[in-house]
Design a protein around this nucleic acid. Sequence first.
DNA 1: TCCACAGACTTGACCGATTCAAGAAAAAGC
DNA 2: GCTTTTTCTTGAATCGGTCAAGTCTGTGGA
Lengths: 152, 152
Amino acid sequence: MTTPGAADEPMALAAERLRAAGMRVTAPRMAVLMAVSGSGGHLDADTLRERARRITGRLSLQATYNVLRALTDAGLVRSTQIAGHPARYEAERHDNHHHFVCRACGFLRDVECTVGAAPCIEPRLPEEYDVQEAAVTFWGLCPGCRAAASAS
Amino acid sequence: MTTPGAADEPMALAAERLRAAGMRVTAPRMAVLMAVSGSGGHLDADTLRERARRITGRLSLQATYNVLRALTDAGLVRSTQIAGHPARYEAERHDNHHHFVCRACGFLRDVECTVGAAPCIEPRLPEEYDVQEAAVTFWGLCPGCRAAASAS
DNA sequence: TCCACAGACTTGACCGATTCAAGAAAAAGC
DNA sequence: GCTTTTTCTTGAATCGGTCAAGTCTGTGGA
């Protein structure tokens, strides 16, 4: 705390990032962006709404979806959609990392890209295809569920 | 056509496969298995229900889901769930191939595995993780949508 | 500083995919 | 053929997410 307004810094930063992306600066957008950035990532819309609410006071679920879409389109947020789970969001890091998903509990964590640049895998597809991204999802059991499974 | 009952052959084959998997042989199961095997693959539950109906006469959507789950669990069918689309099913080929999905129209097609064995990619994860499968999904534009996009 | 307007938020209805639950029907073993 | 157990049918419910209409609010210009 160097200044009386230190607590506002994250908000000012969020506002700056929105402005830089050419977006209007609104309370819901700042709050959601802070919620996404402030966590370890991988939170669903409803959880983000709750966290953003602590900042703005109130926020509809619909607005949360709107904001998340806008932020995703603007490249500030990355959404990860895993079959059977609600979409989860994290701050965009532009590092093309991948994900591990636990089949038992749904736990999701990052996995460093195994090869390098994006798309980090070359598909064997005709030239006419425009391949923009390769998403790799590893499925298996997290340490906890693995232990539980072998114990039973 | 070598015998009068030649038309029943696919059904007999389906029955045999169900029996081999230790499953009860029922009309819905044979019909759905035939529908999955007989197509190029990648059909959703509702479409499979329609096709199976042509064989059984009637079949509830619920039964279709039950059957598809049973067949998937038995390893006879592979389900592919892509975010934003209903689950699609294809005959299990045990060849660890991957998928390309068109962002514009949802079109899905197989892509040969780029590396080899499954899981064909080694994740950088602690040993305690039990990694069972690596699913690679390529996102982009199919030839048709690519042409449409560049034309506008 | 005030105004006007495009864009964003709230509320509430709606939707598609899938699952749950209860009772009827039908395989498989005896 | 009879019994048991699983599977199928019907109908309701759930869940994540979207659509639509009206109100509110940033933002740029007067």
